[in-house]
Amino acid sequence: MAPSSGTDGAYGPGALKRPKRSPGRFGMALVQGCAVLTVAVLVFIIGYVMVKGARVMTPGFLLGSPEKMGREGGIFPSIVGTVSLTLASVIIAAPLGIGTAVFLTEYTQEGLFSRIVRFGTESLAGIPSIIFGLFGFLFFVIRLGMGWSILSGSLTLAAMMLPTIVRTSEEALRSVPDVYKETAYALGASRWQTVASVVLPTAMPGIVTGVILAMGRAVGETAAVIFTAGSSLRLPKSIFDPVRTLPVHFYILAREGISIENAYGTAAVLLSAVLLVDFAAYYILHRISKKRPVARR
């Protein structure tokens, strides 16, 4: 271990002075550089897409129908498709995910059963989206006969979102102070009464944040959606109709070189939507971390 003081052993008047070259200065600069580089990449990506796409993002583009495979016209059906697919998947996944989290935190003690449930959610979290896509195609589209539709797509997306919602809800539920629960129980409340009237309301902001974050991921998902919701450019009339979501539309435009111009526009819309959702989530999280009621000490 190198001594941080420049003199060796003799504590003269200069002994407490800062050494000229402190060891590790290079290392510190290096890690700082990593952070700067990462943020620069982020800023570049967002800036690049926004600047290139801004020109295309006109009301006519947002509200118009695509023409000539998307070479001209707008992206309205894709916006409708993305919104309905995302909302439907949240409506399916949120109750299941929050319910699982309540089950894990309030209704079971650590044991074989909870370990199985936890193993299930954690494994699900690691599965690549393309596998979800394959599964959704085999199971919902073909086996259950739902075809390429909002329904098939949202069920597949819901399965993908489940682990995120379970994890964030579980964190939020575990952060509810135990004395709240003890107080409710001590007043003769039953388990469900305690959960419904004390635990869930207290954890709700954290749960909502998690659901919104999961929603943000669903908005941008491509691989799982392209095989389950289809790629139809028509405006969907019901949840049994196929849709082409924004990321799918963007992918097709860019990869098949149909219109790089409109691809930028679509990417800008997609990115704005994702960022908006993310900021909403962080805003809620930030507000609760400030306002969180904590039992006085």
């Binding site: 990462t38 982020l42 974050l213 491509t222 990321p247």
Partner: peptide, 18 residues
Amino acid sequence: KPLIEILAGIPSVVFGFI
């Protein structure tokens, strides 16, 4: 930290496009 977490939210097709 939240800025870096935003990276996780950027759709993979956008990364591919860049």
